[in-house]
Design a protein around this nucleic acid. Sequence first.
DNA 1: AACGGCTCGC
DNA 2: CTGCGAGCCGTTC
Length: 418
Amino acid sequence: MLGKLEQTPSLLKVLTEIEMPLVPVLARIERNGALVDAQLLGQQSVELGEKLVELEREAFDIAGEEFNLGSPKQLGVILYEKLGCPVLSKTAGGQPSTAESVLAELAEQDYPLPKVIMQHRSLSKLKGTYTDKLPQQINPRTGRIHTSYHQAVTATGRLSSSDPNLQNIPIRTAEGRRIRQAFIAAPGYQLLAADYSQIELRIMAHLAQDAGLLEAFRNGLDVHRATAAEVFGVPLEQVSSDQRRSAKAINFGLIYGMSAFGLAKQIGVGRKEAQEYIDRYFARYPGVLAYMERTRTQAAEQGFVETLFGRRLYLPEIHSKNGAMRKAAERTAINAPMQGTAADIIKRAMVAVDVWLQESGLDARIILQVHDELVLEVREDQVETLRERIGPLMSAAADLDVPLLVEAGVGANWDEAH
DNA sequence: AACGGCTCGC
DNA sequence: CTGCGAGCCGTTC
């Protein structure tokens, strides 16, 4: 009796041509490990601890009593019962929410406590998850951190990373980036970070074969700016930074199968206005609309969607009688081919880079993969060779109808390499 | 130990 | 009521 895998040539191909060759590559990456400056993280922990005590004092002062800032339950009592903040949103469990977006909203209404809580939350996240924990994860024998990559966990084909997760190291804020500064190269070596530029949007252009989007990428345009120009009806050079930010949210929203409601929340406009943006987007990029409709239909008819390389995601809930569950399956159907194709491509690239490094005898090794990025540790005198050749090699992992660009940076630490 | 709420990444 | 993950802390059992 043959299973789905043996019966399906495209799945066999994904197995034998992508996943199996990747196994020894992942093993090598895990064994290589990442060098981390424990002393620097230790200093940061001390500094963060001091700032947290300060913020705690401020919070107690505003609240007029002491409470556990880390407890959403206790915080809810202070905010909504004692200080009389309006309840803007509730959690799935029915309690008044204290999530970031809610606190930001309350802060705008001039309540002083939410801002202190937000600062406390973000710093305690950095301390608890990163600066305190990472030094404990250093292997005493190698002096490096060896994450585990999981090859068969995610629905879309991405890798995941655990113990510790090195795929969610902060980057967004200046405080967070300091943690990346603790990921360093060994003496005599440099870090090289190579990431695909907007890979999922490029895949969307390719899969949807939308003329406008293909054109934008082929002309090397800033695609968020180009989207803004189309949606807001202004010349490219007159796009404001707000318009570009909104267009970026629209582009990401499309990849995620987002609704007008979700977009409205994300960019801070009314639902009607958000719907107008979406309508204008689809009017300008009709190929994208047709592709999304095709994807939904295919998911419903075949019960699965697939990536460019034939990896499948089965979606039984696409037939659910429950509307919310069906909608969720439809969003996954939209997202999975793009996210999954990106995963296929970087996996192929990892194998290609690994083969090249093994054959060339260069003193360089892959130490991290973060979904659209590879980080390598390279002997100093070979950095320029690597930097020149890794882009074309990674780009060649797929033959898309748009350029697949790779940006590569070098530095003494992971922050500098970006 | 398991779960909820929250927050970090792409 | 935008996709995919991992992990922290607080809370409950």
